[in-house]
Design a protein around this nucleic acid. Structure first.
Lengths: 115, 115
DNA sequence: GACTTATATAAGTACTTAATTATATAATGA
DNA sequence: TCATTATATAATTAAGTACTTATATAAGTC
């Protein structure tokens, strides 16, 4: 298989990952701020395992990275990715995430109690 | 459902269409020149119905248009598409199609005989 | 009109995907 | 250590997808 065909397939693979509304929204949010899983959960009406599975796919593709901090695992974009600039280009066409960010910060799920 | 969520889903739907190597390559080729089905067929190692089905999906999404000329149906990008600029942005990250264009023009499938 | 070429559609199928529920692992704190 | 919270993984399942083969439609040619 010629090199170009391989690159085409790899590019298509990344675009297919972006072609899911949940993943695309996750990426758009992470482009504004890192988030842990329980923060992302505030945004979607789906289960925690579903979010974890989406995050795993994005991580396996090298688009995001994770960092554990105590009981939380924070996810953020990986600017080192070969596809970071493609990702940024695509995200510039995606609706603003202000509303979802606000939802996260209002719920503030990492600050249970603190009385 | 909020408007933004709908836009996000529509955008993801387009990206999912781009997330297939055959369709992505078709779009990259059509970005260089219009083609009929039998020309595209020269590029891929798949059946004619498979190509027609990909073209139909792209047409249903408004990304391409068709125009019959005699026995051939020519497909081309549809610059009026709401997603044309997203498409162009993505295509700028896709491998050059010079090789495939050359393959089409060498095979020249619309010029059977002509002796 | 019969034959050929180009393309589309239909039906069937193998594979993939994204969800769910159940459970495992990991960290925290009483 | 036990209970709780956060997250990941496993197993299952329903739905979606991209192909195949067979056939239909449409145009061109003799």
């Amino acid at each position: 298989m010629p090199q170009l065909a391989m690159e085409m397939e790899a590019t298509a693979r990344v675009l297919k990952l972006l072609g899911d509304p949940t993943r695309l929204t996750i990426l758009a949010i992470l482009n504004k701020r890192e988030c842990c899983v329980c923060e992302l959960l505030e945004v979607f009406s789906t289960s925690q395992p579903a979010i974890s599975q989406h995050l795993r796919k994005l991580k396996d593709a090298g688009l995001i990275k994770e960092e554990r901090r105590g009981q939380w695992v924070y996810y953020s974009l990986r600017p080192q990715s070969e596809y970071y600039s493609l990702l940024q280009a695509v995200l510039s066409y995606v609706p603003d995430q202000g509303e979802n960010i606000r939802k996260i910060e209002t719920a503030n799920p990492t600050a249970r109690c603190g009385c």
